[in-house]
């Protein structure tokens, strides 16, 4: 694949227009998130389409990561966090009383900013999530298939017993993606997955995202607008108001948002006037 950013972006923008079906898999409705007294995000309402890549961009402190973590209820882990509004996943409210956040996290996987493989072997990194979730099949097959999907198989197939922490940063991050794939989620949330990596490793992650969107819905938070334009179909631009509360400023197909922003703030941000 051509690694040149502009070529990637053109290739991608061309492809995005002829996606046949556009079903919202996630619907955020009036999402408000508080950390104790602090109102972190207000009134975010938008849909995330199935098997699309949706990018969240915006200046620091705009709440894009907070919104991302609220989608698989990772925010529950943060003491004092409170969420109001609704997030529908396949039309079911993720925050309904009877919903088990553990099950949600299996179906909506997550890849973090800093590569964080388990301090175990490569094989175990992938097999563990599947095992604790009751996977009955052949683990070796699952490991191979997941590593292949994450474009890591050829590099590690001879050292599956080796500790994952001995891999390079980029390899570790692809392993984290493989680990997420192994539990067969429907959605993969990525919180600045390439921000800790060098440009070559970043390029490989971006290629991988384009591959994966054939099978998964991907939501990616990024500070890199080039990356958002290269990999995503839709982009949500978050802004922060004078009380440091984040809100959704503009949400549109990526091409439209970058070429024809509707808001002045969006235009200023994507042209690098602030951020």
């Amino acid at each position: 694949m051509n690694n040149h950013p502009a070529a990637l972006a053109l290739h991608h923008l061309g492809a995005a227009t002829d996606v046949p079906k556009e079903r919202p898999i996630l619907q955020l409705q009036q999402v408000n998130i508080h950390y104790g007294q602090f109102h972190a995000v207000k009134d975010a309402t938008f849909d995330i389409l199935e098997k699309h890549v949706t990018a969240f961009i915006g200046p620091s402190g705009c709440g894009k990561s907070t919104v991302l973590r609220s989608i698989n209820r990772m925010n529950d882990m943060i003491r004092g966090s409170r969420m109001e509004g609704k997030i529908l996943f396949n039309d079911h409210d993720l925050y309904a009383d009877q919903v088990d956040p553990v099950l949600i996290r299996r179906r909506i996987g997550m890849v973090f900013q800093k590569p964080n493989p388990f301090p175990k072997s490569i094989h175990e990194n992938i097999a563990w999530g599947a095992r604790i979730n009751g996977y009955k099949g052949d683990f070796d097959e699952l490991v191979e298939q997941s590593l292949r999907q994450a474009a890591l198989w050829d590099e590690v197939k001879d050292k599956l017993k080796q500790n994952a922490l001995r891999l390079s940063g980029g390899q570790q991050q692809r392993l984290c993606i493989a680990r997420t794939i192994a539990v067969q989620p429907e959605v993969i949330l990525m919180d600045e997955p390439a921000s800790a990596l060098d440009p070559i490793a970043t390029g490989r992650i971006e290629e991988l995202i384009l591959e994966l969107k054939n099978s998964y819905t991907i939501v990616i938070v990024t500070h890199n607008m080039g990356q958002a334009s290269r990999v995503s179909d839709h982009t949500a631009f978050f802004m922060v108001d004078e009380k440091r509360t984040g809100y959704l400023q503009e949400y549109a197909p990526t091409e439209q948002l970058f070429l024809n922003p509707q808001h002045k703030k969006t235009e200023q941000y994507i042209s690098g006037k602030f951020g």
Partner: peptide
């Protein structure tokens, strides 16, 4: 133990106890 390890376990759908016991 860094929190990132706990988060990565939760991220693949581990329960709190599985996270503590296995990771």
């Amino acid at each position: 133990v860094p929190d990132s390890l706990r988060m990565s376990a939760y991220g693949v759908g581990a329960t709190k106890w599985q996270t503590i016991w296995y990771q």
